[in-house]
Amino acid sequence: MNEILKVENLTKAYDDLKVLDGVDLTVSKGEVVVIVGPSGCGKSTFLRCLNGLEDIQEGSVVFNDEVINPFKGSPAKVREKIGMVFQSYELFPHKTVLQNMILAPMKVRKAKKKDAEKEALALLDRVGLLSKKDSYPRQLSGGQKQRVAIVRALMMHPEVLLLDEITAALDPEMVREVLDVVINLAKEGRTMVIVTHELSFARAVADRMIFIDGGKIVEEGAPGEFFDDPKTDRLKKFLESFSYN
């Protein structure tokens, strides 16, 4: 398997507070890595370090043999290839769904408007939102916004997709429609790094599970083992906190 993303000894600190403390991770092409952990453990920060939204104090992030964090020059070039979807959707509120999707391809990739629109409409159709192409984000439900945010990220043809707690802001009945989209992407062989609190979804979609606590990777493994036979006490305790019996 060929490595696409390689993180070595990543350390991130805000002044004296160490948020991430020497994290190593390698992601192969086509792999889906799911990161879980208690609130404030640094998992979202870790994801943001992967596309350079956060600078790092030690270590490195290598993407396709190129060091991208700490970055030299403009990080924009690399971010084209690493898509990211946020918890709060972050669609552009002054643009319609279609305009949201074609803006970056036209400005960054210099795609022709006609081609970009054609591609956008096909993607919208796939996630069942073709009829919403001319709606503004305020007219969509949370689940619809998040589905648009996912296909908007796909418009840049990213090699890796980072998903940062994409269902955390959604009403329970809308979680499913968003996660189904992600599961389909996984089936297509997309490389993804996902941070989530949805454990059953994690189990279904992950090739590899990572448990971060206190800024360190505490345990990692295949989902079956990870959930059914956790090795460390901290992971056991974390998993127990999700069950009610």
Partner: peptide, 20 residues
């Protein structure tokens, strides 16, 4: 986070400012 969202799509600072 709108700035972050635009830059996560690969837009540079000028594009982010003028279009978003």
């Amino acid at each position: 986070s709108q700035t972050e969202s635009a830059s996560a799509l690969g837009m540079n600072r000028g594009q982010t400012f003028f279009y978003v």
